[in-house]
Design a protein around this nucleic acid. Structure first.
Lengths: 190, 190
DNA sequence: GCTCAACCTGTCTAACCTGTCAAATGTAAT
DNA sequence: ATTACATTTGACAGGTTAGACAGGTTGAGC
């Protein structure tokens, strides 16, 4: 259990943003940066999430120390062999992977594992790939998640998936190098 | 019956609040945080209630792990009518509900909505209720989640679900009062 | 190109809160 | 007993706040 949350003071943020800490306080007062106050004198504290959100909103450079490059990929496929094959290939390429064999586990792990990319088999029993895409599209938590459809279905279905919101599609069978290339591109763009 | 009351030391609170433990001690001295002292050296202990009260008073982020009264129920059923009926009944009884029509959404909402109880239809297309129970049992994030199986299957199946880890089981059709009673009991015990 | 107002930012101050350090002491595990 | 670790306390250095004021930037109007 990790309860600790990294927080930043106005002084630290001032250095990160290259401005005076007085200015940071004003940004907080105006609501540009989300912060909470300590009981004593009312010192401001900003969580890492809030800071990153602020920096992104304003296209400000994010220091590498606090930018957690997310190289996690969740492999969703009910075919265990296929899932392991994909996972192995991606692991070799330096990605951090996890596997979900059904929709329930996929949904759960999306929130816990927090992958940057999900490879999705369109045709899984009891669950429609398009439904999953639609759900992700409309979920606030998952706006940054990229979906790479991996399916044996014909090109028309793949195109539809991309049109409905998947980031990319790959038809089975595929070359491992092609898989790695697609995932790399999706994560690189991020 | 659970007699133990979770308490926090100054060091733990310091991590949660992102400050030095010396500061936490000063907050206690000034009465910002309600605490009691151990007989030996006078170590401070803060109950979970006191800590949450303090965090709320100061608009500080509350770690989800220590969230207190949780009256949220996630209704998992692919039959939309049935799901809405269950949800409506529980809402009337004062619970906070959300609905998931398939396994994927269920898994996802479990992590976001963080319910205390999940009502689970055993027989959903493409996903085995027992599989879900097994997954929840082995998930660190979901140890406190209670599962109330709601199903039209025969008693043998219900018994098996309970034996495999469900907290309780209710056979369809059921009386609304019975549903509320079961959920209330599961949440009350918590 | 110029002026002006509006606004944001940097600097300074006093007050005081917070972090750090060290030594002492209690607690838990071996 | 002995060890390792967490907590307390005091003292001190350093950081943070709010207000006031000066300097700099921006954009509109001429």
């Amino acid at each position: 259990m990790n309860l600790a949350v990294k927080t930043y003071t106005t002084g630290e943020i001032a250095k990160i943003c290259g401005v005076n800490f007085r200015t940071v306080i004003r940004w907080i007062e105006k609501g540009y940066i989300e912060a909470y106050k300590l009981p004593g004198r009312g010192d401001n504290r900003v969580t890492e999430d809030s800071l990153v959100k602020f920096l992104k909103n304003n296209n400000m450079p994010i220091p590498s120390e606090i930018e957690t490059v997310n190289k996690r990929v969740l492999v969703v496929d009910d075919d265990e062999k296929m899932a392991r094959a994909i996972s192995r290939t991606l692991k070799k390429a330096g990605f951090d992977t996890d596997i979900a064999h059904n929709g329930f586990i996929a949904g759960s792990k999306l929130e816990v594992f927090k992958p940057a990319v999900m490879t999705l088999d369109l045709k899984m029993p009891g669950i429609s790939g398009l439904e999953v895409i639609h759900y992700v599209q409309n979920s606030e938590q998952l706006v940054n998640l990229k979906i790479l459809v991996v399916s044996a279905q014909d090109q028309k279905e793949l195109d539809e998936a991309v049109q409905k919101g998947a980031s990319d599609a790959l038809s089975k069978p595929f070359k491992n190098s092609e898989l790695v290339a697609r995932v790399s591109q999706l994560i690189g763009v991020n």
